[in-house]
Design a protein around this nucleic acid. Sequence first.
DNA 1: CAGTGAGCGAGCTTCCGCTTGACTT
Length: 773
Amino acid sequence: MIQNLVIVESPAKAKTIEKFLGKEFVVKSSFGHIRDLSKKNLGIDIEKGFKPEYIVNDDKKKVVDDLRKSVAESETVWLASDEDREGEAIAWHLSEVLKLDKKKIKRIVFHEITKDAIQNAIKNPRGIDYNLVNAQQARRILDRLVGFELSPILWKKVKPALSAGRVQSVAVRLLVEREREVFAFSSSSFFKVVALFKGDTEIKAELSEKLLTLKEALDFIENCKTAIFTVSDVSKKPSKKTPAPPFTTSTLQQEASRKLNFSVSQTMTIAQKLYEAGHITYMRTDSVNLSDTAIDAAKKTIIEEFGEKYHNPRRFKTKSKGAQEAHEAIRPTYFDKQKITGSTGEQRLYDLIWKRTIASQMSDAQLEKTTVTINISTSTYKFIASGEVILFDGFLRVYLESTDDDSDESGKDLLPPMKAGQILTPKEITANERFTQRPPRYTEASLVKKLEELGIGRPSTYAPTISTIITRGYVLKEDREGIIRKYISILLKSGKITKEEKTEITGAEKAKLFPSDIGIVVNDFLVEYFKNILNYNFTATVEKDFDEIAEGKIEWAKMIEQFYRPFHKDVEKTLLESDYSKGERVLGTDPKTGKSVTVRIGRFGPIAQIGENDTEKNVKAQYASLLKGQLIETITLEEALSLFNLPRNLGLYEEKEVVIGIGRFGPYVRHASKFFSLKKEDNPITINLPRAIEIIEEGRKKEREKVIRVFEEESSLQLLNGRWGAYINYKGDNYKLPKGSDPQKLNYSDCIKIVNEQKPTNKKKKVSGKTKR
DNA sequence: CAGTGAGCGAGCTTCCGCTTGACTT
């Protein structure tokens, strides 16, 4: 007989809590939600007041059975899921599914996993908050209605297997609109003037005004030839810097992206490992709060490591919309552990978390900013030199938060002492043409930041949302090469002016999110017919209603009713009235044939088309796929026409034709009826024969290396080289090698053993009820 | 698989949030 059974959401949490409680407590985990709306159909009976049909998923049956056994043996069941909407619902689902006797259950909550917090919680049990549960049901039902009514419209009107939802569709919209801002942006140029003055240390000063034209710049520089430069003012201002709050999920994702180049999902996987190893607190949180225990422990470490002067305890307030604050901020569990053992990724992420948390409890940095104004005798403009001295480093000693834009130039130098009236001699003055910046494309992390600002999505869904919009093909995560841009540079040195044209690379992108054609078409369709759902404030608006449900002010079914009736009318209207949406655009006419050139989404992606099919006259349209990076919205007539130069015959190699084309898997070179894919950097329109031969040879080499060994004993058993290293192929099935085995040393019986012991890895298996995102 | 298809029709796809493995050619 168990006296007390405690149920929490996470097994790692269960392990920790068990240590804090006495022997009379057994702690188990529900592994998150234990049941959900049926997936076979809508799972909601609309006519019966939106009655939900809940089902215990197959992969949760074991968990539920196990809990059921424990419950049968226990006197009291403590439902200790998180103190937020979802957590309350989990507690309720548990009580329903496990058919818990109301007298037997106690609902407890804590925001931090500390001994005090947990013992305190045990002393203050309450009942299940049904209002909060209903708010969760409303949230769940609304999301299901939106997702399961919108997606099928897309299957009919755009393409099968597409999806739409309250969160993902808005995420895509953000990307599409940003991309359009990028298209629409026209950059203008100006001249930035910088002077270097002689001195013990060189003084760098920037002109107070941007000069807009070349003539202005030339005139100004000309005037500088004879000018006298006098220091007119030296002003010193104290300033300070304050540390950033401890990490939440989204800020951790952002900083790990900026400082460590981790993707959002990489960060979460590594954080999960750190959490399971007991190194950090829970990694899915929207709270910046630290427990008293943590604040004390940080204090101790800071004073020991850096001294009293560096310590300044702080409490931070969460600002983000819709935060539910069921957990602490993400912090090290033990501050005295400055380093941990584990993979490099784990060590680096832990280091980041350690530093960020410690810095948040440290003193402000004290700075002194100096601004020197320099008069120019021949102009009303002034040069400004600015410098910064750190008087006391404070938290900067361990950590400084990064920013998204990397254009952090000048102004941070140390300046030599100067005083008003002092005359400065220029070493050189340059006027470089600069360009206004287009808006930046989103990275995974900056998209998460934006979604959080809008109150859309939750810490547990940021990473899955990004992978959903990528796997649906709405969005591509890509690097793009920059283009070469010319700019004018004017230099005044030793009394002589030189003007030259220089070049720079601009617009290169690394791991940025780009909307695809299908993403754009789907977005435009949804924005046209479902403005309300696609509105950036939609989530915020319904969240207000959910809050009112949680407070018991309104009834959940009424709220859903009010949302659903007009929404469903729109659904029916759209199904009836909207056209099939292919995103077609007419580019113009083909000068060769006089036929019209159009681009649209075809069965296998975006295509260009010349003319129409006419079966009576036996006229066939010509088709060509768009290249990677080309969009229906922006492709020009010329670019589209050049696609029709494919397939292109480049000539002969080994007496066989070398042909370039574009297929299902992108650009290829065909030779002797074999296909090899072109590399990312190759352009099929411009590629030449020598390069094509290189690709053919490379492909042949890979093919030769593919087979490591075929066994004489049985020809159907092969050792092959794949994308992830060596593997075994036996009668068409693949088997992975045990870790650390050397493929060169495996003999026939080793391989047979592996085949018999392992399940094949390439079996297409239908995982019932499991969401693959 | 290296094309953008015929005609008919059955059967399938999908949401968000809470969790962790299982698994990847």
